[in-house]
Design a binder for these strands. Structure first.
Lengths: 235, 235
DNA sequence: GAGTGGTCTAGACCACTGT
DNA sequence: CAGTGGTCTAGACCACTCT
């Protein structure tokens, strides 16, 4: 059963979409929303907070609830580009597997996956494409204690979906570290670029809902084929 | 008067800090927090939600409330590096003003600041330093209709604090667009780098709490002196 | 001052985790 | 099954905006 506030949030979002409301358009006030959706004030508030945190609307005390500007076309949501996404295009992507092997962890992996020296670690190297263009080269590490099995076929699809469906592990949150640099020869080759071309280097640790780290990844993004979008909120 | 949930959130955060709790440490359960802080359940929940969205804690239904890993030293929070920050080091920064002038807006500025062709626009070019190292070169645009006055002295401090204090404009949210590229000659000069070195290019629009765009900025970050950190949540 | 969003409460009941 | 977080309600009152 879907939660009430998620249902309300979804319906409000769809209503904005359906009515093609532009940025700055005012929505119904809270009393009307309560009457319309037949839920309590707190439920409406929670739905609105969710929409606000996703950048769909903004609320102004004493004034009203308004539609926020939509992101430009062709930009990926930087906070939602790894299994967090509901974007259809991303679901359709088919990564190319470069290498899949089992290794022993080095200090860096032990630190970030919070594992033991004697654990076995899956190392997965892949190149991702979007609309025919390669946009990143990614090296991921998974602890075999947590993700007991991986194969070529799984790695050529969404590993996140596989993990979610097979082990009932839900993604809870992630830590990202980013910096810009020059491509080493190997990465340049996979991205169809030249050594020392610029690149965005992102190191990311994904945690399950329960707080355990299950994925440590290092990704290099293609500087021409990747454009990101991020929405910030105060509070 | 400080809001109750902000007060509770602050105290919980300070308590984590004070007790030097490590990642994964479990906090008191909700009933105990209610009893300790003498507030209602909803107020505790709101405080916890705020701490969760800031990456301080994570909550696991049926299990408990836990401390989340702190960010590494030397990384800037990508979502809080422009006036959003409470980081002391950032408050102490003194930007160097390169140029301050009043111009007529081009199509791009009109689009992003939502202004008129005949409006007057402040154009501010600055270089920011952190611990003696330049880390970005920034060009900002402000509509004189909204920000009626700027001078050299103001631009050599925090424009955001000035705007906040002088015009009672609160920052509400922002849209960021980012991509990687090669530095043009001018930017390279300001950043003490060489033409065609890599750089992180960020275009950002800041909106007041009321929803009006008041700052349109284009920033180039120094690829060696800037390391960013971002925390994502799954709603 | 009318309208609108934000805070806060008390309490019932649901859903998940772990032993 | 005990413990713990999550959902939802009804209602009172506060704070801000705008005319």
């Amino acid at each position: 059963m879907m939660l009430k506030y998620d249902k309300v949030a979804l319906e409000i979002e769809q209503s904005i979409e359906h009515k093609q409301l532009k940025a700055g358009s005012q929505l119904s006030n809270i009393e009307e929303l309560i009457a319309f959706y037949q839920v309590s004030r707190s439920t409406i508030l929670k739905a609105l907070d969710k929409l606000q945190s996703r950048g769909i609307i903004y609320q102004v005390q004493g004034s009203g609830i308004f539609v926020r500007k939509r992101k430009k076309e062709g930009y990926m949501n930087f906070l939602e580009n790894h299994g967090f996404s509901s974007d259809l295009k991303l679901e359709q992507r088919k990564p190319v597997l470069v290498q899949l092997e089992i290794i022993k962890p080095n200090a860096e992996i032990i630190e970030n996956l919070n594992c033991q020296l004697e654990d076995e670690i899956y190392k997965v190297e892949r190149v991702h494409f979007l609309e025919g263009k390669c946009y990143c080269y990614e090296t991921s590490y998974y602890n075999k204690m947590i993700i007991p099995y991986l194969n070529k076929e799984i790695c050529e699809g969404s590993i996140f979906n596989y993990i979610k469906n097979s082990f009932n592990i839900q993604i809870g949150f992630s830590d990202k570290y980013l910096q810009v640099g020059c491509l080493p020869k190997q990465a340049a080759g996979y991205l169809d670029l030249t050594e020392n071309d610029p690149g965005l280097f992102v190191t990311e640790i994904f945690y399950a809902h329960s707080g355990i780290a299950f994925d440590y990844s290092k990704t290099v993004y293609h500087y021409q084929n990747t454009h990101f979008f991020v929405q910030s909120q105060l509070s």
